[in-house]
């Protein structure tokens, strides 16, 4: 379970403050697959980074009673001068994961071949995404975060990612943000609509989608 206690978030822009989230108290239940629907520019990515702990709220606090992943496929946490293998070792260490298991799993999964022992700065964006995706699968989290499901690599590799991710979803929770109701319907069983700095939770996903679609018409 992840609990927001009076959490708010605002950014200072050139045109004054922009509120992403008004003070909100909400519980995101464990072992549900939660889809957060919001139009572009509503702060979906900021919200997922708040949940991940990558960004701090402007006020209030977020309690995480489960281990939460970084947004899936997130690759900007790699160090360019280090090789793929060294990056994995480092991240395994800070998460207290089994280094050998993670290395073997990702080496096999990411299909980077010789590049696995090359500095990450020499990777194409697709290669870093593969490394990052494999890593997210190798370290078991109780809750996975997804910021729009971005496709990685060719159709065959996408298939493989889909399979690995499906296996993880069976025993972990999921929080996904998207502007696309169809995507949310495929992966989630509960919905939250993010609109004008407010989060409205619906236990029934279809009601969330109905509310979201209503908002789109206005």
């Amino acid at each position: 379970m992840i609990v927001f206690r009076d959490v708010s978030k605002a950014y200072r822009t050139n045109r004054g403050w922009r509120v992403i989230l008004e003070p909100t108290t909400i519980e995101l239940p464990r072992n549900r697959r939660i889809g957060i629907l919001g139009r572009n520019g509503m702060g979906k990515s900021t919200l997922i980074r708040l949940i991940a702990g990558t960004e701090s709220p402007s006020s209030g606090r977020i309690e995480r009673q489960v281990s939460v992943s970084w947004p899936l496929g997130f690759s900007s946490g790699f160090h360019g001068e280090l090789t793929g293998r060294e990056n994995l070792r480092f991240i395994s260490r800070i998460y207290g994961a089994d280094i050998d298991y993670v290395t073997d799993y990702v080496e096999e999964f990411s299909e980077l071949g010789d590049y696995f022992d090359m500095p990450v700065e020499t990777y194409s964006s697709g290669m870093s995404a593969r490394l990052a995706f494999g890593l997210s699968m190798a370290i078991r989290f109780e809750c996975y975060l997804v910021d729009e499901l971005t496709s990685v690599g060719d159709a065959w590799f996408r298939d493989k990612c889909e399979q690995a991710f499906a296996a993880r979803r069976r025993d972990s929770g999921l929080i996904m943000v998207s502007h696309n109701a169809g995507t949310i319907r495929t992966y989630c069983d509960m919905g939250i609509v993010l609109r004008d700095g407010r989060m409205t939770a619906y236990d029934d996903l279809e009601m969330a989608i109905a509310d979201y679609s209503e908002g789109l018409k206005l």
């Binding site: 991940a52 702990g53 970084w70 900007s76 946490g77 991240i91």
Partner: peptide, 9 residues
């Protein structure tokens, strides 16, 4: 800075 993406760092 990119390391701070991992909340435990």
């Amino acid at each position: 800075r990119n390391l701070l993406a991992y909340p435990q760092v």
